[in-house]
Amino acid sequence: MSSNTILLSIVFSLQTSIGLLGNSFLLYFFIIKFFVGHKLRPIDTILMQLVWVNSLVLLFKGIPETLANLGLKNFLDDNGCKTVFYIHKVCRGLSISMTCLLSGFQAITINPSSYRWANCKAKATKSIIPCSLLCWFLQLLLNIMVLGRIQGTRASKNSSKILSYGYCIVLGDTTMNPELFAIVVALPDVMCVGFMVSASGYMLLLLNRHHKRVKQIHMTSLSSRASPEIRATQSVLLLVTTFVCFYSLNFIFFTYMHFRKPRPWLVQCSAFLGSCFPTFSSFVLISRDTQVHRCHYGFKEQSTCDV
């Protein structure tokens, strides 16, 4: 093995380990909170799914990449490659969908209290589970088309366009035009990112109005500490910003690889960037969520975890 492959295996193993550590902590937090009997916030339903699918993204991307860079390139057959790629693609799509759902829900929650918005907030809370199930169904259905393009490394190399990940290959000579395939796969993601950016802009506008209103009436005692809704909105904005930055870079690599023959380093960079958000998002949530700080040292004390 060369020094580059050893370095890449270390990078992917560290990324996977650190990401799984952060996501496992949050899963532990939500599970203990549920079984202890504390009431979960509506937003926690989305966060639990986001943490879970991010963990699966890291498992089904980081581990194969680490093994491939260690020299184990034929450890998956065709069915194994299809399974690994399908689960990874579904969970990656769900990570985008849940982040989009999170930003939309928070944009509704932060609106000023009024009868109209109170009714809208109530409907949004009741719609979380149906919307989540719809996201799962669409991602499971949409990514079926990926199965026909995935083969093990023993497959024929005579295809016109092949994207090799070391342990599996993506075929380019399928019945669907490669450009059309890229558009169909990328379009839902681009729509979700567009919605996230719009929702984030709306939340920033509301936060700016709130800041000006508080400043005008000189409520220094209230402005010194942000309300739970404001802090939650700031957390969502930071999470969305992290996602958009990593996704934009990864999307550029993804688009280039499907229109040009990519070099190995480009494939490795794309794989690394694709796992950055699942890795760092958990630490963004841990650092920003006051409930995690309060409940970490005393789940058994009811008063500690009250919202």
Rank of each mutant, 00 (worst) to 15 (best):
Y165C: 01
G166Q: 02
G166C: 07
I169G: 00
V170D: 04
L171Q: 07
L171K: 08
T174M: 01
T174Y: 05
M176S: 05
N177W: 00
P178L: 01
P178R: 01
P178E: 00
E179N: 14
E179A: 06
L180T: 06
F181V: 03
F181Q: 05
A182N: 11
A182Q: 11
V184R: 00
V184W: 00
A186D: 03
P188E: 03
P188F: 08
P188H: 03
P188N: 05
D189G: 09
C192P: 05
V193S: 06
V193W: 04
F195C: 10
V197L: 09
V197A: 12
S198P: 09
A199I: 09
S200G: 12
G201E: 02
G201N: 13
Y202Q: 10
M203C: 12
M203F: 01
L204S: 08
L204M: 13
L206N: 09
L207W: 15
L207F: 13
R209V: 07
H210D: 15
H210Y: 15
H211I: 10
K212L: 06
R213K: 14
V214G: 14
V214Q: 13
K215R: 15
K215F: 14
K215Y: 15
I217W: 04
I217L: 08
M219C: 12
T220D: 14
S221T: 13
S223G: 15
S223M: 03
S224E: 11
S224N: 09
R225N: 12
A226H: 11
S227C: 07
P228R: 12
E229T: 13
R231L: 12
R231N: 09
A232H: 07
A232I: 09
A232G: 15
T233F: 07
Q234M: 08
V236G: 01
V236Q: 02
L237N: 00
L237P: 00
L238P: 00
V240E: 03
V240W: 07
T241E: 09
T241H: 07
T241W: 14
F243V: 02
F243K: 07
V244Y: 04
V244C: 10
V244N: 08
F246H: 07
N250Y: 12
F251S: 08
I252M: 11
F253H: 05
F254E: 03
T255E: 06
T255G: 04
Y256F: 14
M257C: 13
H258I: 03
K261S: 15
P262V: 02
P264K: 04
P264D: 02
W265K: 09
W265H: 14
L266P: 03
L266D: 11
V267R: 00
Q268H: 13
S270Y: 10
S270T: 08
S270I: 10
A271I: 09
A271W: 10
F272L: 11
F272T: 01
F272Y: 06
G274Y: 05
G274R: 04
S275Y: 02
S275A: 12
S275K: 03
